[in-house]
């Protein structure tokens, strides 16, 4: 019979092939990607934000999105979170008596929620049909509804919970901030930054924004300093105001390999809904595993070869013969 020997052979063949792939994996490990040098982004400074929500209204208008209601009277656009129809929202942290702005206890603070435009976005790695893409120059994470199959893997993958799906529609799309890339050709930039009255949302190259962010957290709280508005490097709209009490942390500088949208806050980021993320992107790990196993299809073909070899020998006495022989 030789069954045991064959069993071992089969086991060894497949095992060897599998090992070959796994051993090769460290060589193929994909590093977390960095921001493109000319990457565009936003700097949101919670200490400057006055909660006017001009950015929320402007975003709706710029993206031609309908109002969403969460009150019994359908009077205001009152989304509670970003959604398939709301790409930007100002949320409020509240604690105790809410006396002092940007204070953790008995204080309150604002936080902008919109796409972070990661250097190494999970949504782009996850999307099976390249409907989610990262522009190699601007670094904007864009969405193409014509390719999207609506699997919502991007929704599941994003650690910030940004791509959102329009569940109420039979032809629902994914909705997310694309940094107003459709407005660039008319000389416009991100609508939220364009309308922000205090420069709490500032548009520009992320490398410049990071320098600006570092300058701000180094400022002495309460001492007047200059703050630009609108577009960094655009026409000067700066004004002077006392500097806020910043946490010494530029959110997005290192998280998941860095994001192109940066945030400053006076209240700990965990409390205002920003997840605590490691410096390595999950996309890098996922793609490392994926390419270790399937890079150039070496592993699958090796295993297939081994299996075919074994099967070719074992299948010989096929059903046909057993058919005719009966019992």
């Amino acid at each position: 019979m030789g069954t045991r020997r064959d069993f071992l052979k089969g086991f060894l063949a497949s095992g060897a092939a599998a090992t070959a792939g796994v051993v090769a994996s460290p060589v193929l490990a994909r590093e977390t990607r960095q921001r493109p040098p000319e990457g565009l982004g936003l700097l949101y400074d919670a200490t400057l934000c006055v909660g006017c929500k001009a950015c929320v209204a402007a975003c709706k208008q710029a993206n031609n999105n309908p109002a969403e209601f969460s009150t019994t009277d359908h009077l205001w656009d009152t989304p509670l979170d970003t959604s398939g129809y709301t790409f930007n929202i100002i949320k409020m942290y509240r604690n105790g008596t809410m006396d002092v702005k940007d204070q953790e206890t008995n204080g309150y603070a604002f936080m902008k929620t919109s796409c972070m435009h990661c250097a190494d976005p999970s949504c782009v790695s996850a999307c099976p049909v390249s409907a989610m893409t990262k522009d190699p120059v601007t670094g904007v994470v864009g969405y193409n509804a014509d390719k999207c199959i609506g699997c919502r893997y991007c929704v599941a993958a994003c650690p910030f919970g940004i791509p959102k799906y329009q569940y109420d529609s039979p032809t629902g799309r994914i909705g997310k901030c694309e940094l107003c890339r459709h407005r660039y050709k008319d000389g416009h930039y991100s609508a939220c930054a364009e309308v922000c009255p205090t420069g709490a949302t500032l548009y520009g190259k992320t490398s410049d924004l990071l320098v600006e962010a570092k300058r701000r957290i180094a400022l002495k709280p309460g001492v007047p300093a200059k703050f630009p508005r609108g577009k960094l490097g655009g026409p000067d709209q700066s004004y002077e105001t006392p500097a806020g009490k910043y946490l010494q942390h530029v959110y997005g500088e290192k998280e998941y390999g860095g994001t192109q949208v940066l945030k400053l806050s006076g209240v700990s980021f965990a409390k205002v809904g920003m997840p605590d993320l490691p410096p390595d992107a999950a996309a890098a790990m996922s793609e490392t595993i994926q390419h270790a196993l399937y890079g150039n299809l070496i592993m699958p073909f090796a295993v297939l070869g081994a299996m075919t070899y074994v099967a070719k020998r074992n299948v010989k006495p096929d059903d046909e013969s057993s058919d005719k022989e009966g019992s």
Binding site: S125, A126, C127, P128, V129, S130, A131, A145, D146, K147, C148, I149, G150, C151, R152, Y153, Y165, Q166, T171, G172, R173, A283, S286, E287, Q290, H291, Y294
Partner: peptide, 26 residues
């Protein structure tokens, strides 16, 4: 049944669309 934009599913097999980095694609 679960795909929100099922009519685009052909992109899954379209060389111009596929994303080799995606686990879902595999």
């Amino acid at each position: 049944f679960d795909l929100g934009r099922w009519w685009n599913v052909w992109n899954m097999f379209w060389p111009g669309s596929i994303n080799l980095n995606s686990v879902m694609f595999e």
